[in-house]
C-alpha cells in the first residue's frame, strides 16, 4: 500500500509502461510492412519448396527437393564456389574498406571529396558498363594481361575469364572492386559519431596511429563492422549480378553461384520454381548460421 502511495515509484512505472508502448509504435509500421511484403511471400516460397514440376504444373513432393539437393552436382559446385567467394572476399573487402575510411577521415587530408567519390564510383557504375569493361580488361589481350606482360610478371597471357581458377579470381576482384567503396560509406558515417577527444587523449599517451586503429577505432566501430559483415555475407551468398554479367557462371560451372543457379532453375531452364525455392531456403539457412556466429563473435550485447 505504501508503495502505491510513493509518487516517484508510480511515475517510473507509468513512464516505463508509456515508454514501452511508445517503443512499439516506433517499430509497428516496419513489422507490418515486412510481414506483408517479405514474410507472407516467404511462407509461400516455403510451401513452394515442397512442390516440384514445370511452370504452373506443380505437385507436392514432400521433402524430395531437399533430398535432390545432395545429389545435384551443379548445386554442390555452386555452393562450394559461393562459400569460397565468401571466405576470401568478405574479409579482404571489410579490411580494405576500413583502411580507406580511416585514411579518408583524416581532417588534414586534401582532396578528400575527390578520393571518396572516386572510391565510391564503382558502386554506382551501371552493371552493363561494368561488365563490358571488366571483360575487356581481363580479356586475353586485355589491359591487365598487357600490363603483366610488360612488367615481365608472366610470360604468356593469362586466361582470366576462361580458366576455371583464374575466373574465380576475376570474380573476386570484380566484387571487391565494386563493393569496397560501398562498405566504406558505412564506416565513414559511423566515424563521424566517434568522440574525437578519445584520439587526442591517446595521442597524449603516446599511442601510434596503428595502435589507435586497433584499440580505439575498431572497438568503437564494432556495431558497424558487425553490420557490414552480415550484410556482405548476405550479399555474397546471394551473389548474382557480377557472375551473370562477367562469366555467366563459366567456364563450365566454375564460377556458378547459388543465386545464379536459382535464376537458371527459374528462368533459363524449363522453370522449376519448387526446386528453385528449395535452393533459396538453403541460402537462408546458411545466412542464419553464419550471422549467428558473427553475432556471437562480435558479442552483440552492450
Amino acid at each position: 500500500m505504501s508503495q502505491t502511495s510513493n509518487p516517484t515509484q508510480q511515475r517510473t512505472f507509468a513512464q516505463k509502461f508509456r515508454k514501452n508502448y511508445i517503443g512499439w509504435l516506433f517499430i509497428i509500421l516496419s513489422v507490418l510492412g515486412i510481414s506483408l511484403f517479405y514474410f507472407y511471400p516467404m511462407v509461400q516460397a516455403l510451401l513452394l519448396s515442397l512442390q516440384s514440376g514445370m511452370g504452373s504444373t506443380l505437385e507436392y513432393v514432400g521433402l524430395d527437393n531437399y533430398v535432390r539437393l545432395f545429389n545435384d552436382p551443379t548445386f554442390i559446385t555452386a555452393l562450394t564456389n559461393t562459400i569460397l567467394y565468401l571466405l576470401i572476399q568478405v574479409p579482404v573487402m571489410i579490411v580494405l574498406a576500413l583502411i580507406f575510411s580511416v585514411l579518408l577521415n583524416d581532417p588534414t587530408l586534401k582532396f578528400k571529396g575527390f578520393f571518396r567519390t572516386a572510391i565510391f564510383l564503382p558502386a554506382v557504375t551501371s552493371l552493363v558498363a561494368y561488365a563490358v569493361i571488366f571483360k575487356y580488361l581481363f580479356g586475353n589481350d586485355g589491359l591487365v594481361n598487357d600490363f603483366l606482360l610488360n612488367m615481365n610478371l608472366v610470360s604468356e597471357p593469362l586466361n582470366w575469364l576462361s580458366d576455371p581458377f583464374l575466373a574465380k579470381i576475376t570474380i573476386i576482384i570484380a566484387i571487391t572492386w565494386r563493393w569496397t567503396g560501398y562498405n566504406m560509406i558505412f564506416y565513414l558515417s559511423a566515424l563521424q559519431n566517434v568522440d574525437k577527444s578519445m584520439y587526442e587523449a591517446s595521442k597524449i599517451d603516446g599511442a601510434s596511429a596503428i595502435q589507435q586503429f586497433f584499440f580505439i577505432t575498431i572497438p568503437l566501430l564494432k556495431p558497424i563492422i558487425l553490420f557490414t559483415s552480415i550484410v556482405s555475407t548476405i550479399g555474397t551468398l546471394q551473389l548474382f549480378d557480377e557472375v551473370m554479367n562477367i562469366t555467366s557462371g563459366g567456364p563450365g560451372n566454375a564460377t556458378m553461384t547459388i543465386s545464379m543457379y536459382i535464376y537458371n532453375l527459374s528462368f533459363e531452364y524449363t522453370p522449376d520454381f519448387g526446386y528453385a525455392a528449395t535452393v533459396s531456403y538453403v541460402i537462408l539457412i546458411l545466412v542464419v548460421i553464419l550471422s549467428f556466429i558473427q553475432f556471437r563473435v562480435a558479442g552483440d550485447r552492450d
Binding site: M54, T74, G252, N253, T270
Partner: peptide
Amino acid sequence: GMNTYGIEDILSAEIQQ
C-alpha cells in the same frame, strides 16, 4: 525439347574437362 539450355550447362562443364 525442353532442356536444351539445362543440358548445355552440364555439357559445358564437362567440355572443360
